[in-house]
Each structure stands twice: as C-alpha cells, then as structure tokens.
C-alpha cells in the first residue's frame, strides 16, 4: 500500500479534514459536538455518509473518505475512541498483498 490515499485531497476529503480540524482546534467546538453531534455536523453541510461516519465513530469509514490520517488520529484520541478499537478497525482494511516491506 502507499503512504497516502490521495496525493491531492478531493473536496470530500477536504470537507472531512475541515470538520475534524475545527472540532479539535476551535474554542467550544468539541463541547458543541459532544452536546449535540447532529447539530454540530449540520454546520458543515456534509454529505450524509460523511456525517454518519463521524457521528458513529466509524474509524474505517472515516479513513476510506480520504481524510488526512493525522486529523483522523487526533480525532480518535480526542473523542476517546478506545485505542484497540481504532487499531482493529483500520487493520481490518489491510490487504496483506498490498503490504510492501520494502
């Protein structure tokens, strides 16, 4: 597999990036999200599948949107998705035939 899903972010990936960035950097955004996730996500006008992936803590689903992995990682820690759960969700996507050990 390659290091990156997209060598230039798509608009869908950018939208995901924007939500996960603002959620963890703008004052009061994390509180607003944890209080009412649907209302918070509605601010961004996301396509339904992207909003659903975020709201349901679907780590694999978020990854597959092309979101920047650093933003995904920070989000997983920031909203306290259990570490083992994040790791397992991502690992299930691994196709060993794609694993390149150099």
């Amino acid at each position: 597999m390659a290091n990156w899903q997209e060598m230039m972010p798509s608009t869908r990936a950018y939208l995901m990036d924007k939500v996960l960035y603002e959620l963890h950097h703008k004052p009061d955004h994390l509180e607003a999200y944890t209080t009412d996730a649907d209302a918070y996500l509605a601010r961004f006008g996301l396509p339904d599948d992207l909003a659903t992936a975020i709201r349901s803590n679907d780590v694999a689903g978020m990854y597959l949107t092309g979101v920047n992995p650093y933003l995904l990682r920070a989000h997983c820690i920031g909203v306290k998705i259990p570490e083992a759960e994040s790791l397992a969700a991502l690992r299930r996507l691994l196709d060993h035939e794609d694993y390149n050990d150099g």
Partner: peptide, 8 residues
C-alpha cells in the same frame, strides 16, 4: 504509519 491499516 499514522491512522492507516498498517499502523503498528
């Protein structure tokens, strides 16, 4: 790897 299927 950060937040990819290869993480770890």
């Amino acid at each position: 790897d950060i937040a990819t299927p290869r993480m770890g």
